[in-house]
Design a protein around this nucleic acid. Structure first.
Lengths: 371, 371
DNA sequence: AATACTTTCCAAAGCGCTTTGGCAGTATGC
DNA sequence: GCATACTGCCAAAGCGCTTTGGAAAGTATT
């Protein structure tokens, strides 16, 4: 239909001979520190200090310097500054692409939150997209190459080796989520997944449902393990045994939610209520329920965990309000970023943070119908 | 339900006195270039050249150097390297958060594609999340501060000032999308939105539909303008006039798709077919259609633009295949990144690229039913 | 008036790398 | 056999900033 593309192969070795380059008019820096200081009749030291807020400079000169700097739109060369200070003022986010080359859709909201905080504090965000097997090296290279001052660990898995590796590298980090069976002491920001799923399950049990389905995330991920734990704890407390046939563990996409729901409901002993690990999954579940000619909130109840993804309306889903446990992923990003910056500059106190959650009663849950 | 959080306020001025810091055991660099060269009995020059693939070094010594480097897991300090070369080997992506603080959900797939390419070529990705009014300055600071070698411009809008500003800064850039009414000559990667929506509209017209609805993206965005153009061109060619009441222009989220569809269909002179600008919108449309008790592909036809978002199944939506125009956003990210790197090192030839698209006939379109 | 601080600024030494300009030593041209 | 070219390496000069260790001038102390 449209024209072709992608025939360009510009791949090059990392260290190539590439010198020149096309960009002729490379921005002629209006001034570097030297020029600026000469123009002001001051030493570089003084100018630098004036700009960086050190006290060894009179208010009068500071004002003069700041004025001149903004006048000439002077910006210190960050690379020089990083070299001199040994700090890069950059936080790394290493994002491994899953088996199916899928980038976690929940990721963008977290990033939005974290990124905003970095910005406010004069930090940069370095995003590294890697394949799963490159991930280990990625952290090492970033750390040793002095490119980052800290890192956020995304999506901790069972038996995750990253925190230990990072500790050894001496690189400050915050885990978004928690580890399993690991000595405590690392910093994390997480939702109380066990408690939250236990409560959600209890809610359904309280409505009289006895057969509950769970469409969980991949149980290689710690959060999914926790959610299952909460689910099973509640069942057990109610004297019910959990049934493997009512549980699914999938990557949290819409189509997966659809398929999982279908396979659950087409079962002869189908559940009367379903818990979903993500609103993306719930979306697929909703589609499946309708495709099967069932009514949500009547024939079948649904509770989902809602990350308040912005592209799904930020939790404020229109019309049919889904019963949900909400916790803004974006806020999580903000909190994690704040925490990491706090750790880096030594001001952090509490380094393990539970995010707020909110239980929202919607129209998708109702007492079990007498079938 | 769970415990509190977010009471930590670690905000600090950009240039603070923060010296020390918590991270006691800062990674004790096994070696810097000096140490490494001493240990090898060579000069820094030679070691540097050996590692960077310059020819003025014998193969024998090069091997010796490379071996030692990997043995000691030596990694050159990137900040020093950047300062010395004047290149940062970093590409910037400035992501403004929309009015509603929404991060574009399509963004993550693009990033995944681009990030992979950067990685393969030894480039880093700097992601800057800004508010809309900070955006202009963001580019300037990144450029003048020498932090990036190039930038990808996301989501060009009508009357976009960024390309001109970037040209003036001398910063190489690639636009993801195109501009309107601007002298050509800048680099872009885009889909032929006009052609593609024209073709999709013709498809529906060919099935006998006369009243077509369009749920477009925000028409401040160039791509939405183009899509509407294609839509209207096809209508006009068929001797139909376009009806404002059948068009919606919304941020492409699921709830917006739901609302727009409902408002279209609850109209007394409702369309018999709808075009959606994103599968996210189509998802909402699907939900709305069913909520209204209608059957997709029978009572109403639907065509959508499909960016092959990974969290929606990468275009391979299960079951009910939606008729769609597909073009992988992730590939677009790859192509844009390749192009930008090519421009930077001067090897790029064609700098304006149309992405491939594919028309997929699904089950959501059918000849108009005799109503 | 002499001493002791303070305040305000500066010269110069890095930070760790790349890169220029040369210098030996060996190979090539006539 | 001498001039000319490579080849393979090195010393030293930056890159543009921060930061240490003063020094000069102003102020306070006795």
């Amino acid at each position: 239909m449209t024209s072709l593309s992608q025939e360009l192969d510009l791949r090059k070795p990392v260290f190539a001979f590439s010198k020149g380059g096309v960009s002729a008019g490379r921005h002629e820096r209006l001034a570097n520190l030297k020029e600026l200081s000469e123009r002001l009749g001051l030493s570089q030291t003084t100018v630098s200090r004036a700009l960086n807020g050190y006290p060894e400079v009179s208010e009068a000169t500071r004002k003069r310097v700041v004025a001149a700097a903004s006048e000439l739109s002077y910006q210190p060369n960050q690379n020089a500054r990083k070299l001199a200070t040994g700090k890069s003022r950059t936080i790394g986010h290493v994002v491994p692409l899953g088996d199916h080359d899928m980038i976690n859709p929940h990721f963008s909201d977290f990033i939005a939150g974290a990124g905003a905080v970095y910005n406010q504090n004069g930090y940069d965000m370095l995003l590294k997209v890697v394949t799963v097997d490159e991930e280990q090296d990625a952290y090492r290279d970033l750390a040793i190459g002095n490119r980052i001052d800290g890192v956020i660990v995304h999506g901790p898995i069972v038996g995750d080796a990253r925190p230990a590796a990072l500790s050894k590298l001496g690189l400050p980090f915050v885990v978004h989520g928690r580890l399993i069976d690991t000595a405590d002491g690392y910093a994390w920001v997480d939702v109380d997944n066990v408690g939250v799923f236990k409560a959600a399950t209890e809610h359904l049990l309280g409505l009289g449902h006895k057969r509950l389905g769970l469409i969980n995330g991949l149980e290689t991920m710690v959060f999914a393990v926790h959610r299952r734990e909460g689910f099973e704890q509640a069942l057990q407390a109610a004297g019910l045994s959990s049934d493997q046939r009512l549980m699914r563990s999938v990557e949290m996409t819409e189509p997966n939610g659809y398929e999982a729901t279908k396979s659950l409901l087409e079962h002869d002993d189908a559940p009367s209520a379903i818990l979903c690990a993500s609103s993306l999954v719930a979306l697929g579940a909703t589609r499946a329920v309708r495709d099967l000619g069932l009514k949500l909130g009547e024939d079948i109840s649904l509770v989902t965990f809602d990350d308040c993804l912005s592209f799904l309306g930020g939790g404020n889903t229109s019309e049919v309000e889904t019963t949900a446990i909400r916790s803004s992923l974006r806020s999580a990003g903000e909190v994690a970023a704040q925490l990491l910056l706090g750790i880096i500059d030594g001001s952090a106190k509490e380094t393990q943070v539970f995010m707020d959650t909110e239980f929202v009663l919607g129209k998708t849950t109702s007492p079990i119908s007498k079938g």
